[in-house]
């Protein structure tokens, strides 16, 4: 199955990859939290990025879906459009909230 790959082909692929990876269109924005916002009430149980329960600030510590004091990073500007069945507004919120009964 193996075919010989010439050094020239390796060099071309390597330089293409470095260029492609550096282009803004392809750059992954995940490492940079600048384009994200903390959104409360939209994380599923155990999938929160941080803050849940009194005194804890632990990733993955929420134990109910859509917990009002657990947040998740979401793309900026989208938090208040994400449905949250527990939220009094029906959407995610930028601050922790008391879940409706």
């Amino acid at each position: 199955m193996n075919r010989k790959v010439t050094p020239a082909a390796l060099a071309l692929a390597f330089s293409t990859a470095v260029t492609l990876a550096a282009s803004p269109a392809l750059a992954a924005g995940d490492k940079d939290k600048g384009d994200k916002e903390k959104c409360y009430g939209v994380a599923l149980a155990g999938k929160n990025d941080c803050k849940a329960g009194p005194g804890t600030t632990c990733s993955g510590s929420s134990n109910r879906d859509y917990q009002g004091n657990a947040w998740k990073y979401v793309p900026k500007g989208t938090c208040k459009e994400i449905p949250s069945p527990t939220s009094p507004t029906g959407k995610g919120q930028l601050q922790p909230f008391q879940e409706k009964g």
Binding site: V5, A9, L10, L12, A13, F14, T16, A17, V18, L20, A21, L26, A27, A28
Partner: peptide
């Protein structure tokens, strides 16, 4: 496609 594969790994 080696270039695309490596680019995905890098990005």
């Amino acid at each position: 496609d080696l270039g695309r594969c490596l680019a995905t790994l890098l990005r």
